[in-house]
């Protein structure tokens, strides 16, 4: 192990990590918003929009992010839509993640028995009130483990950003290996930096899951 090389590489990895985190979290935020909207459309059975949403979800769940990014980055400029690599990265991740988040929220909503809404309505609540005070809080808390799993999944997926010339961790590792051929050092740093990015989320995920599984409400 060449420690001097490792130390000299650190700043580049740090920059790459910051870039990945920035684009990644923007994408995840976008995914969250898209997911909530799509789940609401499907749950409320809004005609037409519901079919479009369903098609979008299936399309993005059944194609790889890499292909989606290639399409956004290389194909769209040919029809006059040109976007920066960074925007492209966040948008691609957001579209992919939105489809997954939508499924998570939807199943969270579906898991709440209809009689919960009925018993709220039998107390005189409107459908909206029943949704807001009774269904939504339960759905959100039951979706949390799934959401965190999606976050981990999406942060992992950022590893393909280098293909649209974003200087992320993979790009940096590949670049440095190409220049100095210190493969082991570069790969070790790559693993370490991915751990720095993902381990906290993963630990949070298992903590939340354990809490929800063993405690639910009132324990």
């Amino acid at each position: 192990m060449d420690w001097d090389a490792i130390i000299s590489y650190l700043p580049r990895y740090k920059d790459a990590l910051l870039l990945t985190v920035k684009i990644g979290w923007l994408g995840i935020l976008l995914a969250f918003i898209i997911g909530v909207l799509c789940a609401a459309v499907i749950h409320q059975k809004i005609p037409v929009l519901r079919q479009i949403t369903g098609f979008y979800i299936e399309l993005f769940r059944n194609t790889p992010l890499l292909v989606q990014l290639f399409f956004l980055y290389f194909a769209l400029p040919k029809v006059g839509v040109r976007v920066s690599p960074q925007f492209c990265g966040s948008l691609g991740l957001g579209l992919l993640g939105g489809a997954y988040m939508a499924e998570t929220f939807r199943s969270g909503l579906e898991n709440i028995a209809p009689i919960q809404s009925e018993s709220a309505q039998s107390l005189g609540m409107s459908k909206m009130q029943a949704f807001r005070y009774v269904i939504l809080p339960q759905a959100v808390s039951s979706s949390v483990p799934g959401l965190l799993a999606n976050v981990i999944f999406l942060l992992k997926e950022t590893s393909v950003f280098s293909t649209i010339s974003l200087m992320d961790l993979m790009f940096t590792a590949k670049d440095l290996i190409g220049m100095y051929a210190k493969t082991i050092e570069c790969l070790t740093l790559l693993v370490v930096f991915y751990l720095i990015m993902l381990l906290p989320v993963s630990i949070l995920g298992s903590l939340v899951e354990r809490r929800l599984r063993h405690a639910e409400f009132g324990n």
């Binding site: 028995a113 009689i115 919960q116 009925e118 018993s119 709220a120 309505q121 039998s122 107390l123 005189g124 009774v134 809080p137 339960q138 808390s141 639910e216 409400f217 009132g218």
Partner: peptide
């Protein structure tokens, strides 16, 4: 509905509230 109270077989309290 406020004038018609109803109690269900499966209680159906809201689990997220005390």
């Amino acid at each position: 509905r406020q004038k018609i109270g109803m109690v269900f077989q499966s209680y159906d309290l809201f689990p997220h509230k005390t």
